[in-house]
């Protein structure tokens, strides 16, 4: 993989480069009006202005950081809530058969309702904006975290549990030194999927009427006819999703440094 990156493969680059060139030609020659497709050059100028301000090209001049901060805060609160509930409920249903019978079928019933379907009800309950966004993120991110945690905790190999017991581990030690590390790869998968979903539902929540946040910028820019801001906000969300995923992996690898099946960024 790494060596493939080092020796640049022209076949890989061919498609994105030609797409970029086509985009540039179509936009620069004015064949497509800029309110439908802004040119790459324009996009770069507006991005600079969005980030550092000064030129006042759009109403969003110099406001990148406050929108980013607002979005990150919402994702963090929603995702943390989902991670906490998903991991702890996953542990309970994964390890205790009574709790599994009690809760698991109902959780999956709720899961069958698509997350987007909760939007109208959430708006009634929490009003337009902040709380609704966090609620939608937490709800949507909960399921992948929960399902993977329950699976990981339920499938700790019996021979490892027995090995831990005969080596003297009591209930707590068994959890900390056998169950948790054995379930860990599944937990990481769930958390990564949940974090990805969080960014998706952030946009959904922010489209519905908050003033700050990257999703709000997209919706607002559409109304104001600032089409060039829409792809910029999309790219920002993509980058933030990638960066937060990498950070999550860093934290996970820090917790269990020697884990087999260590995930790569």
């Amino acid at each position: 993989m790494r060596s493939a990156l080092r020796t640049i493969d022209l076949t890989v680059l061919a498609l994105p480069v030609s797409l970029l060139a086509a985009w540039y030609l179509v936009a620069e020659t004015g064949q497509v009006p800029s309110y439908l497709l802004p040119s790459p050059k324009e996009l770069v100028r507006v991005t600079k202005d969005f980030a550092w301000g000064g030129t006042g090209l759009t109403p969003y001049s110099g406001t990148l950081m406050e929108h980013v901060a607002a979005s990150i805060m919402r994702v963090l609160s929603g995702f943390s809530l989902a991670a906490f509930l998903g991991l702890s409920l996953g542990l309970l249903t994964g390890r205790v058969s009574l709790i599994k019978r009690l809760m698991d079928p109902t959780i999956h019933l709720v899961r069958a309702v698509p997350g987007i379907g909760w939007l109208p009800l959430a708006m009634v309950w929490f009003g337009v904006g902040e709380k609704t966004t966090v609620f939608l993120i937490a709800l949507a991110a909960f399921f992948p975290v929960y399902i993977n945690a329950a699976h990981g905790f339920a499938n700790v190999p019996v021979h490892l549990l027995r090995a831990g017991q005969m080596l003297g581990a009591d209930k707590y030690a068994l959890f900390r030194s056998v169950i948790l590390p054995a379930a860990f790869p599944s937990l990481i998968v769930g958390l990564r999927l949940g974090l990805g979903v969080s960014w998706g539902f952030l946009v959904l929540g922010e489209l519905t009427g908050v003033t700050k946040g990257l999703g709000a910028v997209m919706m607002d820019a559409r109304l104001l006819g600032q089409t060039e801001m829409i792809p910029i906000a999309m790219i920002c969300i993509g980058l933030l999703g990638k960066i937060t995923d990498m950070l999550l992996i860093k934290v996970c690898n820090r917790v269990y440094p020697g884990h087999v099946g260590k995930v790569s960024g």
Partner: peptide, 14 residues
């Protein structure tokens, strides 16, 4: 009463 199992049953993360 320590046990040696048929499969080594080592902890793969250690």
């Amino acid at each position: 009463r320590a046990v040696v199992f048929q499969s080594a049953s080592l902890f793969p993360w250690l």
